[in-house]
Simulated assay, not measured.
Amino acid sequence: METGRSAKLEFAVQMTCDSCVNAVRSALERQPGVQAVQVDLGKEQVVVEASLTAQEVQQLIEGTGRRAVLKGIGSGQPDLGSAVAMLSGCGLVQGVVRMLQLSPERCLIDGTIDGLKPGPHGLHVHHLGDLTKDCLSCGEHYNPHGTRHGGPQDSERHVGDLGNILAGPDGRASFRLEDTQLKVWDVIGRSLVVDAGEDDLGKADHPLSKVTGNSGERLACGIIARSASLFQNTKKICACDGVTLWEERDRPIAGKGRQNPDPPSANL
């Protein structure tokens, strides 16, 4: 189900003066869906409480001419866990999907996926975090209770059944969903998959309807990994390849080009 519930988003933002602060604050505070804005020039940090997608908030910030990187996501509740999946496939489909446990009963799913054909696409958590054969080795839908396939609002469904996301004419699906069965702590280490077609939510006559929703081939996938909550990500330089936060910002969000083809030599 779509949600209007707010979450807090922590961004690193390149700001050098008070006019930068005023520009960012003005761009955010006038937007419907934004409840609160905190800007710290010294830390180059912006914290936004909003019911918008993370992508929408980032676009508002970067519309002022300042680059931004999402560093953490959280809520007003005690930290119950957050995760991220970076999706990529054999084609041009790629994206980032974040999960935040808002409460013991509700999980927020916030994502942007590019390169899709316009229209609905099935989105599912799969049992295995195995990409050795790309998305084919992810296993079946995450279904710990052994139920049949259904829609996200059905009481009988796979836990991993997240329904459909809708790609616009530009091939981008930007979505913000809330789910009552998914728990972040249960899906870390599993995989998230977006499919080529629409999930029929188990309501059609096709033999695959109550198994997969007959949503077609798996276009892109990614392992669900634990991610930073608010103020937990202190990274400025990535230890794995030596690039800065901002150099990493200019790389593709997933797929080819994400990793540095020429890592710096070790200092001996």
Rank of each mutant, 00 (worst) to 15 (best):
P104H: 04
G139S: 07
A68C: 07
I113V: 15
L128V: 01
R98V: 07
P78K: 09
Q181W: 10
D186Y: 06
M99V: 11
E140P: 11
G146M: 04
P152Y: 03
W185L: 13
Q101E: 13
Q77R: 15
Q153F: 08
V84M: 11
R67A: 07
T112G: 04
S103A: 10
D179I: 02
I109S: 08
L100A: 05
D179K: 06
Q181M: 13
L102N: 12
D161C: 13
G139L: 04
A173V: 01
C90R: 14
H121S: 02
H126A: 06
K133Y: 11
P144N: 09
A68F: 04
V84E: 12
I73K: 13
G76L: 11
G139K: 11
V84S: 05
R157V: 06
A85Y: 09
D161S: 15
I109R: 09
G163A: 10
Q101V: 06
G119L: 03
A85C: 09
G119I: 02
G91Q: 13
E140K: 15
K117A: 12
T180S: 14
R157F: 00
D154K: 11
S191L: 05
V159D: 13
D110E: 10
Q101I: 07
S155L: 14
H158E: 00
H149R: 03
V125N: 02
L80Y: 13
P144V: 07
V125D: 05
P169C: 02
Q153T: 14
E156L: 14
G150M: 03
E105Y: 10
L192T: 08
E105P: 00
L70P: 02
K117Y: 12
A85I: 12
G74I: 01
I188E: 11
W185R: 15
A68I: 10
V159N: 10
L92C: 09
S137Y: 09
A173G: 01
T112D: 03
E140S: 15
V96W: 05
G74R: 09
V69L: 04
Q77W: 10
V187K: 02
D154G: 07
L123P: 11
Y142E: 02
P118H: 03
A85D: 04
G160Q: 07
K71H: 03
L192K: 06
V96R: 14
M86D: 11
P144Q: 08
A173W: 00
T147M: 12
A167P: 00
L166E: 13
G168T: 09
P118W: 01
C90F: 13
K71W: 00
E105F: 09
A83Y: 05
P118G: 01
C107I: 06
C138L: 11
E105I: 00
T132R: 15
H121E: 10
D79H: 13
D186C: 06
R66I: 00
G111V: 07
L116T: 01
G189I: 09
L162H: 08
L177D: 08
E140V: 15
E156V: 15
L100S: 05
L166K: 07
D186V: 01
N164K: 03
